[in-house]
Write a protein that binds this DNA or RNA. Structure first.
Lengths: 107, 107
DNA sequence: TGATTTGTTAAGCATTTGCTTGAGTATAAC
DNA sequence: GTTATACTCAAGCAAATGCTTAACAAATCA
Protein backbone atom coordinates (compact mmCIF):
# COMPACT_ATOMS: atom_id res chain seq x y z
CA UNK A 1 0.00 0.00 0.00
CA UNK A 2 2.80 2.41 0.82
CA UNK A 3 4.35 1.66 -2.50
CA UNK A 4 1.03 2.29 -4.23
CA UNK A 5 0.73 5.63 -2.45
CA UNK A 6 4.32 6.46 -3.34
CA UNK A 7 3.32 7.77 -6.74
CA UNK A 8 1.87 11.31 -6.97
CA UNK A 9 -0.55 10.38 -9.74
CA UNK A 10 -1.96 7.56 -7.66
CA UNK A 11 -2.23 9.82 -4.65
CA UNK A 12 -4.20 12.27 -6.77
CA UNK A 13 -6.49 9.44 -7.78
CA UNK A 14 -7.04 8.45 -4.16
CA UNK A 15 -7.74 12.07 -3.28
CA UNK A 16 -10.31 12.25 -6.02
CA UNK A 17 -11.89 8.99 -4.90
CA UNK A 18 -12.03 10.10 -1.30
CA UNK A 19 -14.53 12.72 -2.45
CA UNK A 20 -16.70 10.04 -4.00
CA UNK A 21 -16.79 7.21 -6.54
CA UNK A 22 -15.61 7.90 -10.06
CA UNK A 23 -15.29 6.23 -13.42
CA UNK A 24 -11.94 5.61 -15.05
CA UNK A 25 -12.45 8.56 -17.39
CA UNK A 26 -13.35 10.76 -14.43
CA UNK A 27 -10.07 9.80 -12.84
CA UNK A 28 -8.18 10.41 -16.05
CA UNK A 29 -9.70 13.80 -16.88
CA UNK A 30 -7.50 15.99 -14.64
CA UNK A 31 -4.38 13.93 -15.31
CA UNK A 32 -1.94 14.75 -18.07
CA UNK A 33 -1.52 11.24 -19.39
CA UNK A 34 -3.19 8.61 -21.51
CA UNK A 35 -6.22 6.70 -20.32
CA UNK A 36 -4.12 3.60 -20.61
CA UNK A 37 -1.64 4.92 -18.07
CA UNK A 38 -4.47 5.72 -15.69
CA UNK A 39 -5.80 2.18 -16.00
CA UNK A 40 -2.37 0.89 -15.10
CA UNK A 41 -2.23 3.09 -12.03
CA UNK A 42 -5.69 1.88 -11.13
CA UNK A 43 -4.48 -1.70 -11.34
CA UNK A 44 -1.73 -0.92 -8.86
CA UNK A 45 -4.22 0.68 -6.50
CA UNK A 46 -6.56 -2.29 -6.76
CA UNK A 47 -3.76 -4.79 -6.27
CA UNK A 48 -2.79 -2.95 -3.10
CA UNK A 49 -6.35 -3.14 -1.85
CA UNK A 50 -6.71 0.61 -1.52
CA UNK A 51 -9.30 0.84 -4.27
CA UNK A 52 -12.06 -1.43 -5.45
CA UNK A 53 -13.96 -1.18 -8.70
CA UNK A 54 -16.78 -2.82 -10.56
CA UNK A 55 -17.94 -2.57 -14.08
CA UNK A 56 -21.50 -2.13 -15.23
CA UNK A 57 -22.14 -1.67 -18.87
CA UNK A 58 -19.07 -0.04 -20.32
CA UNK A 59 -18.20 2.09 -17.34
CA UNK A 60 -16.07 0.94 -14.44
CA UNK A 61 -16.86 2.67 -11.18
CA UNK A 62 -14.03 2.96 -8.69
CA UNK A 63 -14.22 3.66 -5.02
CA UNK A 64 -11.87 3.85 -2.10
CA UNK A 65 -11.50 1.02 0.42
CA UNK A 66 -11.47 2.83 3.75
CA UNK A 67 -10.40 -0.27 5.66
CA UNK A 68 -7.18 -0.33 3.67
CA UNK A 69 -6.51 3.30 4.45
CA UNK A 70 -7.13 2.46 8.08
CA UNK A 71 -4.47 -0.24 7.92
CA UNK A 72 -1.90 2.20 6.62
CA UNK A 73 -2.92 4.72 9.26
CA UNK A 74 -2.53 2.05 11.90
CA UNK A 75 1.02 1.27 10.89
CA UNK A 76 2.04 4.88 11.24
CA UNK A 77 0.19 5.35 14.50
CA UNK A 78 1.92 2.33 15.98
CA UNK A 79 5.41 3.45 15.02
CA UNK A 80 4.78 6.88 16.40
CA UNK A 81 3.29 5.42 19.58
CA UNK A 82 6.28 3.16 19.97
CA UNK A 83 8.57 6.14 19.76
CA UNK A 84 6.57 8.27 22.15
CA UNK A 85 6.27 5.46 24.68
CA UNK A 86 10.04 5.58 24.81
CA UNK A 87 10.13 9.23 25.64
CA UNK A 88 7.63 8.78 28.44
CA UNK A 89 9.86 6.51 30.45
CA UNK A 90 13.27 8.14 30.62
CA UNK A 91 14.60 5.02 32.32
CA UNK A 92 16.91 2.49 30.80
CA UNK A 93 17.94 4.19 27.60
CA UNK A 94 19.53 7.10 29.40
CA UNK A 95 22.79 6.09 27.82
CA UNK A 96 20.94 6.00 24.49
CA UNK A 97 23.26 3.30 23.30
CA UNK A 98 23.42 1.06 20.27
CA UNK A 99 22.32 -2.42 21.15
CA UNK A 100 24.30 -5.59 20.70
CA UNK A 101 27.23 -4.73 22.93
CA UNK A 102 26.68 -4.65 26.67
CA UNK A 103 23.93 -7.23 26.82
CA UNK A 104 25.37 -8.35 30.14
CA UNK A 105 24.01 -6.58 33.21
CA UNK A 106 27.42 -5.86 34.69
CA UNK A 107 30.03 -3.38 33.64
CA UNK B 1 7.48 10.19 2.34
CA UNK B 2 5.10 7.60 0.95
CA UNK B 3 7.66 6.70 -1.61
CA UNK B 4 10.30 6.34 1.09
CA UNK B 5 7.98 4.05 3.05
CA UNK B 6 7.22 2.09 -0.08
CA UNK B 7 10.29 -0.07 0.34
CA UNK B 8 10.15 -2.97 2.85
CA UNK B 9 13.77 -2.52 3.90
CA UNK B 10 13.15 1.11 4.71
CA UNK B 11 10.01 0.24 6.60
CA UNK B 12 12.04 -2.22 8.66
CA UNK B 13 14.51 0.56 9.38
CA UNK B 14 11.74 2.87 10.50
CA UNK B 15 10.32 0.12 12.70
CA UNK B 16 13.70 -0.38 14.29
CA UNK B 17 14.10 3.35 14.82
CA UNK B 18 10.66 3.67 16.34
CA UNK B 19 12.00 1.54 19.18
CA UNK B 20 14.86 3.95 19.71
CA UNK B 21 17.88 5.59 18.07
CA UNK B 22 20.39 3.40 16.30
CA UNK B 23 23.69 3.62 14.50
CA UNK B 24 24.00 2.75 10.81
CA UNK B 25 25.56 -0.60 11.70
CA UNK B 26 22.72 -1.30 14.10
CA UNK B 27 20.28 -0.71 11.29
CA UNK B 28 22.29 -2.88 8.94
CA UNK B 29 22.75 -5.85 11.31
CA UNK B 30 19.38 -7.56 10.75
CA UNK B 31 19.31 -6.76 7.04
CA UNK B 32 20.66 -9.11 4.39
CA UNK B 33 22.55 -6.52 2.40
CA UNK B 34 25.72 -4.50 2.34
CA UNK B 35 26.28 -1.58 4.68
CA UNK B 36 26.51 0.57 1.60
CA UNK B 37 22.99 -0.34 0.57
CA UNK B 38 21.71 0.50 4.03
CA UNK B 39 23.37 3.90 3.85
CA UNK B 40 21.59 4.54 0.56
CA UNK B 41 18.26 3.63 2.11
CA UNK B 42 19.07 5.91 5.00
CA UNK B 43 19.69 8.75 2.57
CA UNK B 44 16.25 8.25 1.09
CA UNK B 45 14.69 8.29 4.54
CA UNK B 46 16.57 11.45 5.48
CA UNK B 47 15.70 13.17 2.22
CA UNK B 48 12.04 12.42 2.89
CA UNK B 49 12.34 13.94 6.34
CA UNK B 50 11.24 10.78 8.12
CA UNK B 51 14.62 10.23 9.73
CA UNK B 52 17.27 12.56 11.05
CA UNK B 53 20.83 11.62 11.91
CA UNK B 54 23.95 13.14 13.30
CA UNK B 55 27.48 11.95 13.44
CA UNK B 56 29.73 12.06 16.44
CA UNK B 57 33.10 10.50 16.16
CA UNK B 58 32.84 7.73 13.65
CA UNK B 59 29.31 6.66 14.46
CA UNK B 60 26.22 8.18 12.94
CA UNK B 61 23.18 8.02 15.18
CA UNK B 62 19.81 7.95 13.49
CA UNK B 63 16.43 8.69 14.91
CA UNK B 64 12.88 8.96 13.72
CA UNK B 65 11.22 12.31 13.06
CA UNK B 66 7.78 11.88 14.64
CA UNK B 67 6.46 15.09 13.09
CA UNK B 68 7.02 13.62 9.65
CA UNK B 69 5.16 10.47 10.59
CA UNK B 70 2.38 12.68 11.84
CA UNK B 71 2.20 14.38 8.45
CA UNK B 72 1.76 11.06 6.68
CA UNK B 73 -0.84 10.02 9.22
CA UNK B 74 -2.66 13.27 8.65
CA UNK B 75 -2.91 12.72 4.93
CA UNK B 76 -4.51 9.33 5.42
CA UNK B 77 -6.84 10.56 8.12
CA UNK B 78 -8.04 13.37 5.90
CA UNK B 79 -8.81 11.14 2.93
CA UNK B 80 -10.65 8.71 5.11
CA UNK B 81 -12.56 11.53 6.80
CA UNK B 82 -13.46 12.97 3.43
CA UNK B 83 -14.90 9.63 2.40
CA UNK B 84 -16.80 9.08 5.62
CA UNK B 85 -18.22 12.58 5.59
CA UNK B 86 -19.82 11.60 2.31
CA UNK B 87 -21.48 8.57 3.77
CA UNK B 88 -22.92 10.59 6.62
CA UNK B 89 -25.05 12.74 4.36
CA UNK B 90 -26.84 10.43 1.95
CA UNK B 91 -28.17 13.45 0.12
CA UNK B 92 -27.08 14.64 -3.26
CA UNK B 93 -24.99 11.74 -4.47
CA UNK B 94 -27.89 9.32 -4.34
CA UNK B 95 -27.50 8.89 -8.03
CA UNK B 96 -23.82 8.25 -7.38
CA UNK B 97 -22.93 9.65 -10.74
CA UNK B 98 -19.74 10.54 -12.50
CA UNK B 99 -19.29 14.27 -12.57
CA UNK B 100 -18.98 16.46 -15.61
CA UNK B 101 -22.22 15.55 -17.36
CA UNK B 102 -25.52 16.75 -15.96
CA UNK B 103 -24.25 19.95 -14.40
CA UNK B 104 -27.61 21.53 -15.20
CA UNK B 105 -30.17 21.37 -12.38
CA UNK B 106 -33.01 20.15 -14.53
CA UNK B 107 -33.59 16.76 -16.10
C1' DT C 1 -26.54 -0.11 -38.83
C1' DG C 2 -22.70 2.46 -38.19
C1' DA C 3 -20.28 5.68 -35.19
C1' DT C 4 -18.90 6.95 -30.56
C1' DT C 5 -17.77 6.30 -25.98
C1' DT C 6 -15.37 3.64 -22.43
C1' DG C 7 -12.34 0.72 -21.33
C1' DT C 8 -8.71 -3.35 -22.05
C1' DT C 9 -4.41 -5.46 -23.50
C1' DA C 10 0.18 -5.93 -25.28
C1' DA C 11 4.58 -4.26 -26.80
C1' DG C 12 8.19 -1.21 -26.41
C1' DC C 13 11.14 2.23 -24.20
C1' DA C 14 13.53 5.67 -21.10
C1' DT C 15 14.19 6.39 -16.37
C1' DT C 16 14.43 5.18 -11.69
C1' DT C 17 15.44 1.96 -8.08
C1' DG C 18 17.88 -1.21 -5.26
C1' DC C 19 21.45 -3.35 -5.02
C1' DT C 20 26.95 -4.76 -5.54
C1' DT C 21 31.82 -4.13 -5.52
C1' DG C 22 35.82 -1.57 -4.73
C1' DA C 23 38.48 2.05 -3.16
C1' DG C 24 38.65 5.61 0.13
C1' DT C 25 38.59 8.53 5.01
C1' DA C 26 38.40 9.40 9.72
C1' DT C 27 38.09 7.83 14.42
C1' DA C 28 39.08 4.66 18.02
C1' DA C 29 41.44 0.66 20.02
C1' DC C 30 45.54 -1.97 21.01
C1' DG D 1 52.08 3.29 15.04
C1' DT D 2 49.54 -0.29 13.39
C1' DT D 3 45.08 -2.22 13.02
C1' DA D 4 40.29 -2.54 13.25
C1' DT D 5 35.89 -0.05 13.02
C1' DA D 6 32.28 2.73 11.07
C1' DC D 7 31.12 4.68 7.70
C1' DT D 8 31.50 7.36 2.72
C1' DC D 9 31.52 7.74 -2.21
C1' DA D 10 31.48 6.41 -7.05
C1' DA D 11 30.72 3.16 -10.72
C1' DG D 12 28.13 -0.18 -12.69
C1' DC D 13 24.19 -3.20 -13.49
C1' DA D 14 19.74 -5.85 -13.58
C1' DA D 15 15.08 -5.34 -12.58
C1' DA D 16 11.13 -2.56 -11.72
C1' DT D 17 8.38 1.60 -12.90
C1' DG D 18 5.81 4.92 -15.47
C1' DC D 19 4.75 6.03 -19.35
C1' DT D 20 3.47 5.74 -24.85
C1' DT D 21 1.31 3.99 -28.97
C1' DA D 22 -1.54 0.84 -31.36
C1' DA D 23 -4.88 -2.56 -31.96
C1' DC D 24 -9.06 -4.39 -29.99
C1' DA D 25 -13.80 -5.31 -27.60
C1' DA D 26 -18.05 -4.15 -25.85
C1' DA D 27 -21.80 -0.86 -24.69
C1' DT D 28 -24.47 2.91 -26.07
C1' DC D 29 -26.04 6.42 -29.25
C1' DA D 30 -27.90 8.58 -33.56
Amino acid sequence: MFQALGDPTRRAMVERLSRGPASVSDLARPLAMSLSAVVQHLQVLEASGLVRSEKQGRVRTCRIEPAALKTVEQWIVERRASWERRLDRPADHLAEESEAPDKRRKR
